[in-house]
């Protein structure tokens, strides 16, 4: 049974249909890259997958074993966060709340995992800093650390590399493919298609109100990018 299966999904945003008849299947351990121009409903699709938005047509099935507390999510930055007084640790630790029920305080094992992930992302030296004093790239890495701490089975990333410089982007893909090879399912929106398809196992390409492609990334590289004469 697939982890997530969508059939003829359609979703509206602000009264306008942005996604129509999208179907795809995500198996456990897949690394899916979602591509498409601006306004093709990529972020909206992620909001449907994270149950933040309801689809208004079609069906969406989640595997019974996938619970919300197994999901790690990196949303785009919001206005509220720009001048928010938050310590870096406070932000990353909030990843664990979903699986804690009514437990009021964090456990030692959770703070340990926090340090491991901060080390992996090379942001240990930021741990005493305030979130809004960080650069865009540092903020993105902090939110990525939060998503990684939360993810047990599924990692959903909305443009995780948009503020990173090229060496940090390479590190990012290295970490994500390592996780994916260990069985983590990854769904990611990226504008950096050339890099992303190299690491992804599947690609979903959304067009203006229709689905242009869904399938393996090898096929996608062969047929799609060449016929379009390269990407953007």
């Amino acid at each position: 049974m697939p982890l997530i299966e969508a059939k003829n999904l359609s979703v509206s945003y602000a009264g306008k249909k942005v996604i129509e008849n999208v179907s795809f299947k995500i198996e456990e351990g897949d690394f899916l890259c979602i591509a498409g121009e601006n306004g093709t409903g990529k972020t909206t699709l992620l909001k449907v997958l994270t149950s933040l938005k309801k689809a208004d047509g079609g069906t969406l099935h989640f595997n019974k074993n996938l619970k919300k507390k197994h999901i790690g999510y990196l949303p785009q930055q919001t206005d509220v966060q720009r001048d928010f007084p938050a310590g870096v640790k406070e932000v990353i630790l909030s990843a664990f709340l979903g699986g804690m029920g009514f437990m009021p305080f964090y456990r030692a094992s959770q703070t340990k995992k926090l340090s491991e992930i901060m080390e992996k992302l090379e942001i240990t030296e930021l741990s005493k800093k305030c979130y809004h004093e960080l650069s865009g790239g540092q903020q993105q890495r902090v939110l990525l650390a939060r998503a990684l701490c939360a993810a047990k089975k599924l990692l959903i990333l909305d443009e995780p590399t948009s503020a990173l410089d090229s060496s940090a982007v390479q590190d990012f893909y290295r970490i994500i493919s390592e996780l994916s090879s260990k069985g983590m399912t990854v769904i990611m929106i990226s504008h950096d298609i050339e890099n992303a398809v190299k690491y992804a196992s599947k690609v979903l390409h959304l067009g203006e109100s229709e689905m242009l492609y869904f399938g393996s990334s090898e096929e996608y590289i062969k047929s799609f990018t060449k016929s379009k004469g390269g990407e953007e």
Partner: peptide, 19 residues
């Protein structure tokens, strides 16, 4: 306290991850 922080900082993340 931690939940109030998390909901204030990023309600979407909290919702998506099961808070």
């Amino acid at each position: 306290y931690h939940r109030i922080f998390s909901v204030t900082f990023d309600a979407d993340f909290s919702k998506a991850t099961g808070s």
